[in-house]
Lab assay of single mutants.
Amino acid sequence: MDALKSAGRALIRSPSLAKQSWGGGGRHRKLPENWTDTRETLLEGMLFSLKYLGMTLVEQPKGEELSAAAIKRIVATAKASGKKLQKVTLKVSPRGIILTDNLTNQLIENVSIYRISYCTADKMHDKVFAYIAQSQHNQSLECHAFLCTKRKMAQAVTLTVAQAFKVAFEFWQVSKEEKEKRDKASQEGGDVLGARQDCTPPLKSLVATGNLLDLEETAKAPLSTVSANTTNMDEVPRPQALSGSSVVWELDDGLDEAFSRLAQSRTNPQVLDTGLTAQDMHYAQCLSPVDWDKPDSSGTEQDDLFSF
């Protein structure tokens, strides 16, 4: 819950932080000083300027060897085509990944977070970031790969997607708890209302004896509580940590079903599988986004697919 609360507080303090972009060759504004600060901008989305290598189908939802083989196929196909790589912007948030063309600003792909089953910074092609997700059109699994400016960037994108998945799962947990509370309150309110109706004398007997209905007592009954809980029953509950912020979080049926399955089948359902080692994760978390744009010590960066 700490990640969720800190993310909400950060967004309320400075929503404009989320509009910064990394990996864009110096076009961005001043960047936060450390990885923790940038992680807090996830709610509205972190932007990464990358190059799209392509996509291939895979048979399993996750796995280092599986993704490595898929990336190898994608890279080989991209090299064989001889075409310049498409420059894209990857927007990562707890909602998922939005992929747009840098030149036309046209939407290429919009992947809900619950469809993503794996992401990684490839070991062999260490400047490549990739994720595996279920197609929104059918049940097939797709591996999408992107060329980053350097290994640090690939690791940073991988960690960002993993963190977005974690925050999304926490949102789901909060929403589920809130819905259970509202359902319980609604049920209790309905029981109270039913009890009051059972003990209320029939209207005919009131008229016969000349008694008047006590409207004041009726007004004191917990009807307002019942209506408050039943009027918006169809509205999706939102985490309290975000009250007053500009973010509107809505959970669709697909996300609810997917996270429910994860909660039942996995020990740590909030953790998205990645190909990063503990050492890689520690190294990337210690980086400032400013470091992502620094040239690798191995030599001059080449803006070309064939540089790796």
Rank of each mutant, 00 (worst) to 15 (best):
T231R: 05
T267P: 02
K5E: 08
K150D: 10
L90N: 09
V128A: 06
D253P: 00
A69L: 15
N34I: 13
K150L: 02
E33D: 15
L57E: 03
C199R: 10
D2C: 06
F169P: 01
G244T: 01
S6A: 14
I108Y: 09
A228E: 05
S307N: 07
A278Q: 08
R39M: 04
D126A: 11
L50K: 05
K62I: 09
D214Q: 09
S298Q: 08
I116W: 13
T231G: 11
D37I: 03
I74V: 15
F171N: 00
Q163D: 05
G26S: 14
I98A: 01
L107P: 14
D280M: 09
G254T: 00
E44Y: 08
I71V: 08
Y283G: 13
F306Q: 05
D253I: 00
W172T: 01
T300N: 00
M281R: 02
Q240Y: 10
E64F: 14
Q197H: 06
E59F: 13
P94V: 12
W35T: 15
E188C: 07
G8C: 03
L43R: 15
D234N: 04
S205V: 04
D198P: 00
L85M: 14
Q20Y: 03
T149C: 06
T41G: 08
I97N: 08
S16Q: 10
S14M: 00
G26H: 09
T104I: 13
L212D: 06
L262N: 02
Q134E: 11
H125S: 03
V111K: 15
P289S: 07
S205G: 06
Q20R: 15
F146H: 07
R39V: 11
F171Y: 04
A78K: 12
L159W: 05
A18F: 06
K79R: 02
Q197D: 01
W35D: 11
V192Y: 01
F129N: 15
S186R: 06
Q163M: 03
S227F: 06
K87E: 06
S224L: 07
M281H: 08
Q279K: 12
G26M: 03
T36C: 12
K84I: 03
A133I: 11
D303S: 10
A278I: 07
L212V: 09
H137F: 10
N110G: 08
S288P: 00
V290H: 07
T77V: 04
E188W: 11
K176C: 04
A3P: 09
K179E: 02
R151E: 00
Q270W: 02
A70L: 03
T100C: 14
L85S: 10
G244E: 09
Q60N: 09
Q106V: 13
K72I: 13
A10M: 14
E180P: 00
D252A: 13
G190V: 13
C143R: 10
Q134N: 06
E217V: 04
P202K: 07
K150W: 06
T38S: 15
Q139P: 15
P94W: 09
D293K: 09
Q106S: 11
P94T: 02
V128M: 15
P201Y: 07
N229M: 01
S135F: 15
K176E: 04
A7I: 11
